[in-house]
């Protein structure tokens, strides 16, 4: 059920107040435009469109806004309310060396990540004011090389066990919980370097077409407000084969393939 600010959610005093609600003279009232979410006795109103609310363990894709050498940290844009912070102590050094960070490392900060770089990271902790702190201490995370960035609503990406996918069509996909999606060529297992060795060879046209097709498929799904995960994207990719890549940005075709995907997934669920 859709609620707008000022609408009464419930007059029953038994319920507890969750996000997106407030008490107006003992009556639980909605404060955002969204749908009511009920977990046992907890009532909250989930806004239909919002900035990203991080949780510990989330995988995010973000862009470095600035390098703050004096504070030993980077500021990262992850479309959350406050800027996300990446501390020098929570990154991997090139080569995977594990040691305390020295003054030399502070001076080298700009050579690890500089302004405008895209990185993938995991949320390590949340500060008292709600700002996120992320880390890249795993070879899976780190700087991103050549590929395509897509921005969708964060509510379309479910929290799942894995957010890194190697799709059968031959692309690597990072579904950031913050709604930033990264599409690139697959990196073979075991040679991940945390992004410090970036392959800058030209990408062949055929691969670029596959990447564009995946991008257009995701956009089509996002436009129809369908959840994004590897199954839905794969299904949509297969369905889109009957069209040329450039036709996939026409709104009529976008709607069509998204609806076909929806139907096909429903059928597969039943089986």
């Amino acid at each position: 059920m859709l609620c707008l600010p000022g609408d009464t959610v419930t007059e029953d005093a038994d319920y507890m107040r969750g996000h997106g609600t407030y008490y107006k003279s003992k009556v639980l009232t909605s404060s955002v435009a969204g749908c009511i979410d009920k977990v046992n006795k907890l009532l909250s109103v989930r806004p239909l469109r919002t900035r990203y609310n991080g949780e510990i363990g989330d995988i995010v894709v973000g862009r470095v806004i600035d390098v703050q050498t004096e504070h030993k940290r980077w500021r990262i844009d992850t479309s959350s309310r406050l800027d996300t912070i990446l501390l020098l102590s929570s990154v991997n050094l090139p080569g995977g060396e594990l040691r305390r960070k020295t003054v030399e490392d502070e001076l080298m900060m700009k050579s690890f990540f500089k302004e405008g770089d895209l990185i993938s990271a995991e949320v390590q902790s949340i500060f008292a004011d709600g700002a996120l702190s992320v880390h890249t201490r795993n070879l899976k995370y780190g700087k991103l090389g050549q590929g395509v960035l897509l921005r969708v609503s964060p509510s379309l990406v479910e929290r799942r066990k894995t957010h890194f996918h190697n799709l059968p069509c031959g692309v690597h996909l990072i579904l950031g919980n913050n709604g930033y999606i990264w599409i690139s060529l697959p990196v073979s297992e075991g040679v991940e370097s945390g992004g410090f060795a970036i392959n800058l060879d030209p990408v062949p046209l055929a691969d670029r077409e596959v990447i564009s097709r995946v991008r257009n498929c995701i956009l089509a799904l996002a436009k129809q407000k369908m959840m994004l995960h590897s199954t839905s994207i794969n299904t949509c990719y297969e369905i889109s084969q009957s069209y040329q890549v450039k036709d996939l940005i026409k709104s009529k075709i976008m709607t069509e393939i998204a609806q076909l995907t929806n139907e096909k997934m429903k059928i597969e669920e039943l089986q």
Partner: peptide, 11 residues
Amino acid sequence: LLDAGIPMKCM
């Protein structure tokens, strides 16, 4: 503001 999902007391 409704579209942005910013919490408001009423409209």
